[in-house]
């Protein structure tokens, strides 16, 4: 695969053109990865230490007791930005599952529902959470 750079001083955004003999699964995956690419990492605090978190490494972002946290496989980080602002900055593979939680759809293992109708979501890192009924359509749209 060849990667070229063309400078365009008139352009106000980065534009990526994928050139290939035909649309194969590899090309599709490459384009999806580019679409989901998000250059600026999120900064999070763990034990008072500021760490830059790659968006791909984040499993979920949620608010609890008026604070926002991001869970990764390495641990939980305190985030200074509010959830609604993060939602706008996150790539397309992040989906809101309740008023207080956004998950990385690439980290979802499965969903389940008990007889009472409570919908549970199982994520990588043995994380389990609840999906709000009013967000089920959004979750379905994002995953199907």
């Amino acid at each position: 695969m060849r990667v070229d750079f063309f400078q365009d001083r008139n352009s106000d955004e980065i534009r990526v053109v994928v050139q290939a003999p035909s649309m194969t699964q590899d090309v599709e995956e490459l384009m999806e990865t580019i679409r989901n690419f998000s250059p600026s990492p999120i900064s999070g605090y763990s034990d008072g230490v500021l760490t830059k978190l790659g968006k791909d490494s984040i499993i979920r972002i949620y608010s609890k007791d008026k604070r926002v946290y991001a869970d990764t496989l390495d641990g939980s980080y305190l985030i200074k930005s509010p959830l609604y602002q993060l939602e706008n900055d996150l790539p397309k593979n992040f989906v809101r599952i309740s008023n207080s939680e956004i998950v990385n759809s690439d980290k979802i293992i499965k969903l389940d529902m008990n007889l009472a109708g409570t919908i549970r979501i199982y994520l990588e890192g043995d994380i389990e959470s609840r999906v709000s009924r009013r967000y089920m359509s959004r979750v379905k749209e994002a995953l199907i």
């Binding site: 979802i108 293992i109 969903l111 919908i119 979750v139 379905k140 995953l143 199907i144």
Partner: peptide
């Protein structure tokens, strides 16, 4: 009927997740 409609949605999502994974 409400229970089954959510169950079906969940089943479709799980099948899609299985394919993705």
């Amino acid at each position: 009927s409400i229970y089954m409609s959510y169950r079906m949605k969940i089943q479709q999502i799980n099948e899609s997740l299985k394919r993705r994974r």
